[in-house]
Design a protein around this nucleic acid. Structure first.
Length: 214
DNA sequence: ATCCCGAGGG
DNA sequence: CCCTCTGGAT
């Protein structure tokens, strides 16, 4: 996709929130980081349901580290992969206390060194909590990009670089967040809801799955 | 019954 | 590259 068209594509997606009911409820670095770690393979609703009690019990890295995997587990048993996540979050909080003065580091290298934190999670935290020019390319964005011919045959990392390069600076925050939601709730893997997609004009598959259910 | 999905490990 | 973890969605 040509540069000018890519910018239009990003602009279209960045100006419409497709799932206002699942809006991100955490914005400070620590709760955001933990919430994102818990989000893999779980619905936003499930994460938003169980995290308030968890953060009431452990609002800081110190308290979370003290809770440990055994103490964290009971709060998150309703979401997928909870055993691994409890372990990761406990170890992550321990690392924050021991290696980062109880603060969430604001650089990629340190974030990705934390247990359970990969490139995608680091990019979300860097963008939303630290205001940096990053884009988290998860499989939702990757699929959306592929269906729209954003960067045919390219790797997720290539797509990430392209989005960072093409996204107008004033739209960075919204583009990052709304792109994920579009892939997750509109341009879904199984039953995409093309009839309410703001990127229809760019999509190569729209004619095949455009109609709403009867 | 099968797919979803990010991180980590083989 | 492949596989596993797990509850939820379909």
């Amino acid at each position: 996709m040509p540069a000018a068209q890519a910018e239009s594509f990003i602009r279209a997606l960045a100006t419409a929130n497709p799932a206002p009911e699942t809006e991100l409820i955490y914005h400070d670095p620590f709760t955001l980081l933990v919430a994102v770690v818990l989000s893999a393979q779980a619905t936003d609703a499930a994460v938003n349901r169980c995290t308030p009690a968890l953060f009431a019990a452990a609002p800081t890295p110190e308290r979370m580290a003290a809770l440990g995997a055994e103490g964290i587990g009971p709060y998150i048993r309703s979401i997928g992969l909870w055993q691994a996540k409890a372990k990761n979050v406990g170890a992550l909080a321990r690392d924050l206390v021991d290696k980062h003065g109880g603060r969430v580091p604001g650089d990629r290298e340190a974030l990705e060194a934390l247990p359970g934190v990969g490139r995608k999670t680091a990019n979300v935290v860097l963008n939303i909590a630290f205001g940096q020019n990053t884009m988290a390319v998860d499989t939702h964005i990757f699929r959306l990009g592929n269906r729209c011919g954003l960067a045919p045959g390219k790797t997720p990392r290539d797509v990430e670089d392209m989005l960072v390069r093409r996204c107008p600076p004033d739209l960075l925050r919204d583009a990052h967040h709304w792109l994920i939601l579009h892939g997750r709730y509109v341009c879904k893997a199984r039953a995409p809801e093309c009839w309410r997609c703001v990127a229809r004009a760019f999509c190569n598959y729209r004619d095949k799955v455009l109609a709403p259910p009867a």
